[in-house]
């Protein structure tokens, strides 16, 4: 399965945020979407998630054996936002129960507590209102729900930003464990995180997506190359 983006354009007034974006993402890989602050990473995700209307272009899924365009349904996408918002009036357990119930197509493989255990959400937190959760635990909760929903396309918008070292590491392991069978696009403005977690790095700069060859990852000059690329495009 592939996720194809074709000639995607998004403007805000006279400002062109995405300029004729063309790219093919492959199943089973984590793509690091790297861009500077304000490059348009969140706008790119919002366009795919249908939260923002696009000006032109299209995106779709393509099967492995055919060239047939499969249009993307809302349930095909999982979207983790950087500042997780959760329904504050529910407890973690209530939310998880509700979430599993509304996803009739999902056959839960675990009990609620097993799911919490998998995401390392402390027992004390499970029956507390979500409004009292820490930022990290809200993030884990959001990730857990997206894992249960098992979307074909997972969009992660800077999910590790402002997490402590331990939770960030736990989250990275979960993301790695969940990459099979889906396309994962992980946006970040932190080069180290992208290099550490992702199978391929894609630069979003000047409104376009460009892949970066990661074969020479061990090369000490790799980071310098990316920074130089971003600078060059900035000056272009």
């Amino acid at each position: 399965m592939e996720f194809v983006i074709s000639h995607l354009v998004k403007n805000y007034g006279s400002k062109q945020v995405l300029k004729d974006v063309d790219f093919v993402f492959e199943e089973g890989k984590i793509y690091g979407l790297l861009g500077r602050n304000g490059a348009g990473k969140t706008t790119f995700f919002n366009c795919i998630n249908g939260d923002t209307d696009i000006n032109s272009g299209e995106f779709y899924l393509r099967g492995n054996d055919s060239n047939e365009k499969i249009s993307i349904a809302p349930e095909d996408i999982g979207y983790l936002v950087s500042t997780p918002t959760v329904p504050e009036f529910m407890t973690g357990r209530e939310f998880l129960k509700f979430f599993i119930e509304v996803h009739e197509e999902v056959k839960p493989e675990k009990t609620l507590d097993e799911y919490f255990d998998y995401m390392m959400i402390p027992e004390d937190d499970r029956d507390r209102l979500l409004k009292d959760y820490s930022h990290g635990t809200k993030n884990k909760m959001q990730m857990l729900l997206n894992i249960i929903a098992a979307p074909k396309l997972m969009l992660l918008d800077e999910p590790l930003t402002s997490l402590d070292v331990i939770i960030a590491e736990e989250m990275k392991n979960v993301i790695r464990a969940q990459k099979q069978g889906r396309i994962t696009i992980f946006s970040t403005h932190l080069l180290d995180v992208a290099v550490d977690l992702c199978d391929q790095i894609v630069l979003l700069h000047n409104g376009k997506l460009e892949p970066i060859d990661k074969s020479n990852l061990g090369d000490a000059a790799f980071k310098d190359k990316i920074i130089a690329a971003l600078r060059d495009q900035d000056n272009a």
């Binding site: 939260d51 809302p74 349930e75 996408i77 509304v102 959001q142 997206n146």
Partner: peptide, 9 residues
Amino acid sequence: SLMTFSFFK
């Protein structure tokens, strides 16, 4: 918050 989840749409 639920609007960030696909099922809600």
